[in-house]
């Protein structure tokens, strides 16, 4: 059993949850939080687990960055897809 505490000012819930999603094969985990921290309890800690944890935290932070920069465009694309499909089906 090992506990990791991560500052909420460093990581959003989206980053934490996406990271934890991929850690299931390494260890069971439990997420709780305080007003300032994410508290993650790992049942079977290992080097591999923490290596993966750090990598995922980093990459999901980057992904979040990309998502923020592109979120309006993402929505516009989704809306246009339906229009485009409709146009093709009517052709």
């Amino acid at each position: 059993m090992e506990i990791r505490e991560l500052q909420k000012s460093d990581y959003t819930e989206w980053v934490i949850r996406n990271t934890l999603y991929w850690l299931t094969p390494y260890s069971r985990w439990q997420l709780s939080d305080s007003s300032t921290h994410w508290i993650i309890q790992f049942e079977s800690p290992s080097n591999d687990l923490f290596y993966e944890l750090d990598k995922l935290l980093n990459d999901y932070t980057l992904r979040e960055n990309v998502m923020e920069k592109t979120s309006t465009i993402r929505e516009a694309i989704t809306l246009n897809v339906l229009k485009s499909i409709q146009q093709r089906l009517e052709a």
Binding site: I73, A76, I77, T78, N80, V81, K83, S84, I85, R88
Partner: peptide
Amino acid sequence: QAALSSALAKKL
């Protein structure tokens, strides 16, 4: 944006 949407629609 229209090109990305069109490509996704075509793919689906």
